[in-house]
């Protein structure tokens, strides 16, 4: 495993720890999109169906279990925890899941490496992950007040994908891995979606201002 891949996984893990900290310590999920979190559960469940069938490494299995467990518990807190659920911005988190899930599923049926259940589900999870942040970005845009934890959470999620791009470049040139268009292009799209957010995040950080996205 190269340094970029590890950095990617660690920023991903850190983003989840940050969000769980906000939820468990602050008892708040203000500014967090339940839609996006539910999409992540679908992403992990459909991608990791091979967990019980194929063993890659101890690290790989543990991380998969952590991502599955944490994403499910985040959704549980936001939906059912009697204090946390009161802080959820239900009225502004209106992005419909189906508008993302359906096109991604159709695309996965049409464009995949092999027409098998596991492979189509895996491809679907890549397409869905690429766009799963959209409800969260829409929610941020509608929020007058973005707290630091939420801003940092989204920034780390974007950083995770940027590190994965570097990881693929490294693997291709240094480790002579094959060209893999489906994960590469969906990963590239996923990172590009953060470009606007990155711009305002870094700007607010440089000017020591509170993060605010233009409506």
């Amino acid at each position: 495993m190269n340094a970029f891949r590890l950095a990617g996984d660690m920023t991903h893990l850190l983003s989840i720890i940050l969000l769980l900290h906000k939820i468990r310590a602050m008892k708040s999920c203000a500014g967090i999109s339940l839609r996006t979190q539910e999409l992540y559960v679908i992403v992990f469940v459909t991608r990791y169906v091979d967990l019980s069938m194929k063993y890659y490494s101890f690290y790989n299995s543990i991380m998969k279990i952590v991502f599955l467990g944490t994403s499910i518990s985040i959704v549980w807190y936001m939906r059912y925890h009697k204090v946390v659920k009161q802080t959820y911005n239900k009225d502004v988190d209106t992005f419909r899941h189906i508008f993302l899930i359906l096109p991604c599923f159709v695309l996965a049926l049409l464009i995949n490496r092999a027409f098998t259940v596991i492979e189509v589900l895996w491809t679907f999870s890549l397409y869905l992950e690429a766009v799963a942040i959209l409800p969260q970005l829409v929610l941020l845009q509608r929020s007058r007040n973005i707290d630091n934890l939420t801003g940092n959470y989204v920034f780390l999620l974007g950083a995770y994908r940027a590190f994965y791009l570097l990881n693929w470049i490294y693997r291709f040139f240094i480790e002579n891995h094959q060209v893999r268009w489906i994960p590469w292009l969906s990963g590239l799209l996923q990172t590009a979606i953060y470009a606007d957010f990155f711009y305002y995040y870094i700007k607010s950080w440089k000017n020591r201002e509170k993060l605010k996205l233009p409506a």
Partner: peptide, 10 residues
């Protein structure tokens, strides 16, 4: 290179 070059990722 191996077949599962992307599948060992998360």
């Amino acid at each position: 290179a191996d077949q599962s070059s992307v599948k060992d990722e998360l």
